[in-house]
Amino acid sequence: MAETILFYIFAIGVLFAGAQVVLRRNPVHGALSLVACFFFLAGTYVLLAAHLIAILQIMVYAGAVMVLFVFVIMLLNLKDEELGTPRRTIWKGIGLVSVVGATGAVAWRGLGSAYDSVLAHGAATQLTDMAKHTLPGAPFGSLKAVAHAVYLNSVLPFELTSLLLLVAVVGAVVVAKGKI
């Protein structure tokens, strides 16, 4: 019961903070809403018994990444007039209705019934069962289980990510470098 209440608090928090990121005119407010969103998301991870991921979420995303975001926004120091004035057009309305409609349909028809059995057992226990099935002895979400998943099951995507980061760094330097 307490788990369910906590889940709804975190879920509503994620949705509300996520909407604020898009809706706020001031970029600093948007960035801080993103921090809040990350914290609520970390709470959801804790509920899923994924403690390591929750800590990483707070330390890496809410900590390091967001500090960089806020620094960049403050260095750019955009004025109100540079941001332009918001316009309400019919297309934005159509876009909003179709996005909400499409995600609503998927959530209602797809996710609702697909997870009925999962919800009946309780999502966390179900996932713990899954983890026990693959790796006896290490609880789901522990450092050992995550390491097992990353370095054995997903070794190719893990190594490929280092290539991705290398490409991103080289690409960023190329684009940011002076005129060629």
Partner: peptide
């Protein structure tokens, strides 16, 4: 997951090549 990461490796490199001449 591999599809996504490989897709991004390919795309990020092509984005930067597109911006090559400034």
């Amino acid at each position: 997951i591999v599809v996504f990461i490989a897709l991004e490796v390919m795309s990020l490199a092509v984005y930067s090549l597109t911006a090559w001449l400034r």
